[in-house]
Design a protein around this nucleic acid. Structure first.
Length: 763
DNA sequence: TAGTTGGGTTTTTTT
DNA sequence: AACCCAACTA
């Protein structure tokens, strides 16, 4: 009996074909992760390959972490040394080591989309680009696409000849790259493009990595872009032991540069490639699969694939129609509650999917009312929130003084009376002497034009310098608390005392928790590493399994996940497929949208519910939409089709799909149905959240973040802290928003902390 | 310099 | 509906 016995023939072929290029076309739910993990096990245990020589690339940190775990479970020794990471982390790791060969400092900063926007705005001003006709957003997306295709600013300029608009973008692109380099910063796309550049210009580096990575595997291959493919191609060039796994039907990231040709043309690039199809689905019932197949068969130009399962037919697909989005949300939350009550499903078995993040709002409110624990994945990234970005900017300034953006962000936050005029003068001085903004600040005395304001700049510089020198002696937790204390950041928020301030403070507490957690996990936690980790996390990465909450997320976020019970909401033409793709003359766009529907449907193991709302408020406008064409592509015999019965009717009523207006169900006026609740009114209902909560600010902050209550320990009690170990409580006093507890730890000495996130356990 | 207000804009998806 | 920005006022 070996671990490979449970694999089917095709899966075995995928595992045992270790040499040469391999393309595994893996339908949804066909066990591709099992193939990858067993393949790694086979390489190590049977072929004696050193884990050091294996690289597996995934798209999210979450997927990477899970793969690492599963490999460790089945491989005896040597799984620790395998590189299992995302494209972006891989590139950062390489560039941290060799970035200097491209003219960057190895402690470069990673810019997020917010930072990019700030940079491009400034450039548009300088180049006098009229942002009415040429939007910053379009410029950035043009730059991003160029980088995905490995097109340099120079090349972009050459292609732009004769096209004024393109020429302007080319200028902006050039300026943008210069600005980033000057700030010692890279954006997401640079990480990939620069690594490719490094490999192409530096044989020594490339050969080093080629020698190391004898076996390379790429997951979600259909979502790779041209630059990522080139990166992989270069790495695999010495050994050709490249195994890619993907499903062209699940390619949903074209807007991010994913090049579907990578998968469709794999055999052209590697004519000797072995192609393996995984067509047995182990996830869903026949009905779910038939529904998925019914939709996806309307796409042209896909690789032939027929998914089958030996599971039974299972439940019919439920199709539910509502008058408006409030009723839809009411139904979904109610249905989850009903299933829970009847023991048909637990919260953690359910997921609610939608096309756009904005749709989460109503659903969330309804889940709060019902008291159902849930998590919203995505929306505004935790690290993109203002207060978090502010504090991170302090950390970045301390870590990399060349990051002008970070310095400018915080120089007057909290208010120090340093205004735009002063900043402009400092910048002029910096430009003149070709030094960074921060270095210019340090020489403020020499800037004649500033005058009195010099007195305001000096304390700022001194403060940053002090943080830097103190960092030699204390850890990141002490640093962030010192920053908050010294700058009075939280104090200012407390003074503001509005509703938002409360949730901002909670977010800051959560940031501190994340820093504490980071320091616990790492052996030698450094500031740079923390900032790097933070820059590369995706929302989905923080979703914990096993805390039994309903997950609310976009269809995109749901890729790669599976749930027993899935709700697809907003099944309306104009929402899904989105209006943009319907209006587009490019038929490929609607096909990508259809693939998204395919992804959504195939997330379900047993039970799939599609929801339609006749009316929906979009950007302040009430829209009426037809039933999604994707619903109509599902064979009708697979569906039950009902509108919920009005209160006085005994049973649900069945009506034909094509005549939603035929229903006898009159809604009460929308306004009285579900009056909009303010955040304050929502507070008593708090249900979701918890540490690591990804929910929209304010609505579902967590159990662990509840502040103000008196802890269950007192002065003199012995307590245990997750990091500092055991100690004695020496002081406990009520602070402005939480108890401040002082503990004399046996090993770590005396610490003062807020009770809510100290999480001390009395014993 | 800081805070307010009114007007204009909004890609849908994200590493 | 919500956000962002520019212009205006204190």
């Amino acid at each position: 009996m070996s671990i490979y016995d449970t694999l089917n023939e095709q899966q075995k072929k995928g595992v045992f074909t270790a040499q040469g290029p391999v393309l595994i076309l893996a339908g949804a739910g066909s066990g591709k992760t099992r193939v990858l993990t067993h393949r790694i096990a086979y390489l190590i245990d049977e072929l004696g390959v050193n884990g050091w020589n294996i690289m597996a690339i995934t798209f999210t940190n979450k997927a990477a972490g899970e793969m690492k775990e599963r490999v460790a479970d089945i491989v005896g020794m040597g799984s620790e040394s395998i590189w299992v990471t995302t494209f972006h982390s891989t590139c950062v790791r390489i560039l941290r080591r060799y970035g200097d060969r491209l003219g960057y400092d190895n402690n470069f900063t990673i810019y997020d989309s917010d930072d990019q926007k700030t940079v491009i705005k400034d450039i548009c001003k300088r180049l006098q680009i009229d942002t009415k006709t040429l939007k910053e957003r379009s410029i950035l997306s043009a730059i991003s696409s160029a980088k995905d295709e490995l097109i340099s600013p120079e090349e972009f300029g050459l292609n732009a000849i004769g096209d004024y608009r393109k020429q302007r973008i080319a200028q902006a692109y050039k300026e943008y790259q210069a600005a980033l380099k000057k700030s010692n910063a890279m954006d997401f796309d640079d990480l990939i493009m620069n690594t490719v550049e490094l490999f192409k210009t530096d044989k020594e580096v490339l050969e080093g990595y080629q020698k190391r990575f004898k076996y390379i595997m790429v997951d979600e291959y259909q979502d790779t872009n041209t630059a990522q493919f080139e990166l992989i191609r270069l790495l695999a060039d010495a050994h050709h032991n490249l195994c890619v796994v993907g499903d062209d039907d699940q390619s949903i990231y074209k807007f991010r540069g994913a090049n579907i040709r990578n998968i469709l043309d794999f055999e052209k690039v590697y004519p000797e490639a072995e192609v393996i199809r995984l067509e047995q689905n182990y996830r869903s019932t026949q009905n779910v699969l038939d529904a998925a197949n019914g939709v996806i068969r309307n796409n042209k130009g896909r690789k032939r694939k027929t998914l089958w399962t030996d599971k039974g037919e299972g439940n019919l697909i439920h199709f539910r129609q509502f008058d408006n989005a409030y009723e839809e949300a009411e139904f979904v939350a109610g249905d989850v509650a009903r299933k829970k009550r009847k023991g048909q499903a637990d919260y953690g078995d359910c997921a609610v999917l939608f096309r756009t993040n904005a749709q989460a709002r109503l659903l969330e409110e309804r889940f709060v009312v019902e008291g159902i624990p849930y998590n919203v994945v995505g929306g505004t990234n935790f690290y993109a929130r203002r207060e978090i970005k502010d504090l991170l900017a302090y950390l970045k300034t301390i870590d990399n003084g060349r990051d002008d953006l970070a310095v400018k962000r915080i120089i007057n936050v909290p208010k120090r009376g340093i205004g735009a005029a002063t900043i402009a003068k400092v910048q002029d001085y910096a430009d003149m002497h070709e030094i960074s903004f921060y270095d210019a600040l340090r020489q403020a005395d020499a800037i004649a034009s500033i005058g009195k304001s010099t007195a305001k700049l000096k304390p700022f510089v001194n403060m940053i310098q002090a943080f830097r020198s103190k960092l030699e002696f204390y850890g990141l937790e002490d640093l962030i608390k010192d920053i908050i204390e010294t700058t009075g950041y939280v104090e200012e928020l407390e003074a503001a005392d509005d509703e938002e301030a409360g949730s901002r403070i909670e977010n800051i507490d959560e940031l501190i928790s994340k820093i504490v957690a980071f320091e616990e996990i790492r052996d030698h936690p450094s500031l740079g590493e923390f900032l790097e980790e933070v820059a590369l996390v995706a929302d989905i990465d923080n979703v914990e399994n096993g805390n039994n909450k309903v997950l609310l997320m976009t269809l995109h976020s749901a890729k790669g996940l599976e749930f027993s019970h899935v709700y697809l909401t907003g099944m309306e033409d104009g929402i899904f497929p989105s209006y943009m793709t319907i209006a587009s003359d490019d038929p490929d766009e609607i096909e990508e949208e259809r693939r998204l529907a395919y992804v959504g449907i195939t997330r379900a193991r047993e039970d799939l519910t599609l929801c339609y709302a006749k009316m929906r408020m979009i950007r302040g406008e009430t829209q009426m939409n037809a039933i999604s064409r994707f619903v109509k592509e599902i064979p009708t015999e697979l569906m039950d089709n009902r509108v919920p019965a009005p209160k006085h009717c005994p049973a649900d009523m069945t009506i034909p799909i094509n005549e939603p207006s035929g229903q006898p169900y009159k809604a009460r006026p929308v306004a009285t149905l579900m009056p909009k609740r303010t955040a304050a009114e929502n507070k008593p209902f708090i249900a979701g959240g918890g540490i690591g909560s990804l929910s929209a600010a304010g609505i579902s902050k967590g159990i662990g973040a509840v502040t103000g209550g008196k802890p269950d320990y007192d002065i003199g009690d012995r307590v245990k802290h997750v990091k500092y170990g055991e100690g004695t409580v020496t002081d406990l006093e009520p602070g402005p928003r939480d108890y401040k507890v002082t503990v004399d730890f046996d090993d770590a000495g005396q610490k003062i902390m807020y009770a809510a996130f100290a999480k001390l356990v009395k014993f």
